[in-house]
Design a binder for these strands. Structure first.
Length: 281
DNA sequence: ATTTTCCCCTGCCGGC
DNA sequence: TGCCGGCAGGGGAAAA
């Protein structure tokens, strides 16, 4: 499942390859991808446009176009953006859209479960900033994400810390897998009330979030399911996961058996010893 | 205002 | 062998 590190991996790869290129043709095979817009309208607005930049906000990939417009892409669960230097050779199985660039290269959007979305965001940069601020919170790998900022985001919240960390409007880009890994590294139980963490725990959690995301970016993301980067390669972070998907196996730190439970409608993995249960459990 | 539930979508897996 | 229910999950809308 693409979370921040996976999207960042794709962003960095595309940023080396597609800026400066012009879209010569765009094909949308699945109207749902651009819903509620009509595919022909979206195509008409993209063809002939020059790509200026490739950015990211949380899990949103932002393909900046000349003329104050951005093609926003969200991969959701199983979306893939695949770039090839030439014309597409093999037919992608779950092809939903295809972008042709003026150097002959091709970018395809494949998506087995069809949850992914693409849409155009218009407006001057300051207006666009407001647009994203309403959807995504602080970037956890930016210098602006300090332990104090995290404390302010959690303050007064009674919901489980895991559910709060999954809220994209607070911290941008964390998903199920990296929340599990960060909470484990910080020694915080996923059901702890978000506002109940003491200063030491807050500091540990802040550090763990940054550390695990940075490690995952370094590893090129985690290919636990269908994830591939934009060159079709797997990441290696799946080999570095300590609790996520490791139910029944010994905790790397204390050898206690890793437990799987359900928090915020998500499969949740943790070590019952390293992450002590909150009262009244 | 915040928190929880439901829903979308398809492949996969266990049970019978 | 094959059918079927349940599960997986990001995020947005709807409900609590």
């Amino acid at each position: 499942m693409p979370e921040l590190p996976e999207v960042e991996t794709i962003r960095a790869q595309l940023a080396e390859r597609i800026p400066g290129r012009t879209l010569t043709a765009v094909e949308v095979f699945d109207p749902k991808l651009v819903s509620p817009e009509e595919p022909e309208d979206v195509v008409a607005r993209l063809v002939g446009r020059r790509i200026a930049s490739v950015g990211r906000r949380g899990k949103y990939l932002l393909i900046g176009l000349d003329g104050d417009e951005t093609l926003a892409v969200h991969l959701r669960m199983t979306g893939r953006l695949h770039w090839t230097p030439g014309a597409p050779t093999e037919e992608e199985r779950f092809l939903r859209a295809r972008f042709h660039l003026d150097d002959g290269s091709t970018m395809t959007f494949g998506d087995m479960r069809r949850f992914g979305r693409a849409w155009i965001v218009s407006g001057a940069p300051d207006e666009v900033e407001d647009y994203w601020r309403a959807r995504v919170g602080v970037e956890p790998l930016s210098p602006r994400f300090t332990a104090r900022v995290l404390e302010g985001l959690l303050d007064g919240r009674r919901g489980p810390i895991k559910a709060v960390l999954l809220n994209q409007a607070l911290v941008a880009g964390l998903g199920n897998m990296y929340v599990d890994e960060a909470l484990y590294q910080a020694g915080v139980h996923p059901l702890r009330a978000a506002g109940s963490l003491d200063p030491v725990e807050l500091r540990r959690l802040h550090r763990a979030i940054r550390d695990r995301l940075a490690a995952a970016v370094e590893a090129g993301g985690a290919s636990i399911d269908s994830y591939r980067d934009s060159l079709g390669e797997k990441g290696t972070m799946q080999d570095l996961l300590r609790v996520h998907l490791h139910a029944g196996e010994p905790c790397p730190r204390c050898r206690t058996t890793i437990v799987k439970t359900r928090v915020a409608q998500r499969g949740t993995y943790f070590c019952p010893r390293c992450q002590p249960a909150p009262p009244p459990w």
